[in-house]
């Protein structure tokens, strides 16, 4: 009896040890990656790196200014495309709740959420690059916008569901028409949650490379025209990392660092926003 008890105790301690061991061990790669990123990244970053254009092959120095601008343009364009569509569909899900279209929309959102990013790149190539016969920032942002869409739809729906029904009833009782109730009462009440969703969506797309490979394509020049190929930080990391030049590797680490900080800032802003403006009634 006593022996049996000891054995059970022993197994309990052993399994606890195993769980703790594996959990701690899982931190090792993360620390390893972060260590490398910070060590190599910070060394590569200086004023020239952030504000200059790339130099031709063979010349050292130069920077990734065009890629930083490109990434910002891509983010702005795709946000402009995804936000109206995402919020509209989110309101529809929250307001209508049942029916065939709601079912289809939920299914569609789930599918988009799981679609590999490279497939979205192929889609944007077929829809934008092929008819326009040119790689372009527009094509890249179409791919990124599709990727953002499910995040915005889900967060809009979740947020609007949290807003109490009494608020809506109050507005309707005052004689406000339905559309004003939604636009002037419900949406402002859920503003912070929707904003959080948009920030999360941006964090999801900011570091994406695969959808840009054959849409935005990359470019060594500074480009502000959305109909021309454009460079982006993730593309710089990929192209420089697979090059044979140590100076480009150094710059790729720098670009990685800038990119990670960018994604992190968006994630953090979303998190802080969600906590600070938590919807409470």
């Amino acid at each position: 009896m006593m022996e049996n008890y000891r054995k059970r105790e022993l197994i309990n301690t052993l399994m606890k040890g195993l769980v703790f061991f594996f959990t701690t061990l899982s931190l090792v790669p993360l620390l390893f990656i972060l260590f490398y990123l910070i060590k190599q990244g910070i060394g590569a970053i200086n004023w020239e790196f952030l504000t200059h254009l790339p130099k031709p092959v063979g010349e050292s120095g130069g920077g990734v200014f065009n890629a930083i601008v490109g990434t910002i343009i891509l983010i702005i364009l795709s946000t402009l495309m995804a936000v109206p569509l995402g919020i509209g569909a989110g309101i529809y899900l929250a307001e209508v709740k049942t029916g065939k279209l709601v079912y289809l929309l939920r299914l569609g959102t789930d599918i988009l959420q799981g679609t590999p990013s490279i497939v979205l790149g192929v889609i944007a190539y077929l829809w934008v690059v092929k008819p326009m016969k040119s790689f372009s920032a527009l094509a890249g942002s179409v791919a990124l916008a599709i990727m953002m869409l499910p995040v915005i739809i889900c967060s809009t729906e979740e947020t609007l569901k949290l807003i109490p029904y009494s608020l809506k009833e109050a507005a309707l009782a005052l004689g406000a028409p339905y559309y004003r109730t939604i636009l002037k009462v419900i949406l402002p009440a859920g503003f912070s949650g929707i904003l959080t969703g948009i920030l999360l969506g941006i964090a999801r797309i900011a570091g994406e490379t695969a959808p840009l490979l054959f849409t935005a394509f990359g470019s060594p020049y500074l480009n502000l025209n959305p109909l021309k190929p454009i460079n982006a930080l993730p593309l710089v990391v990929f192209n420089y990392a697979s090059s044979p030049y140590p100076d480009w590797w150094r710059q790729a680490w720098g670009a990685s660092f800038v990119l990670t900080v960018m994604v992190l800032v968006f994630n953090l802003a979303a998190k802080i926003g969600a906590r600070k403006w938590e919807i409470k009634f």
């Binding site: 109206p84 569509l85 509209g88 569909a89 309101i91 529809y92 899900l93 307001e95 209508v96 279209l101 709601v102 289809l104 929309l105 299914l107 569609g108 959102t109 599918i111 988009l112 679609t115 497939v119 192929v122 889609i123 077929l126 829809w127 599709i146 869409l149 739809i153 028409p177 339905y178 559309y179 939604i182 636009l183």
Partner: peptide
Amino acid sequence: DKLFERSLTFTAWLVVILVAAMCLSL
């Protein structure tokens, strides 16, 4: 009101059509 509801429904259809069109294009 009608217009608002219609445009909501339209957006919802747009997303569904987008997914269907993706599959179809491929």
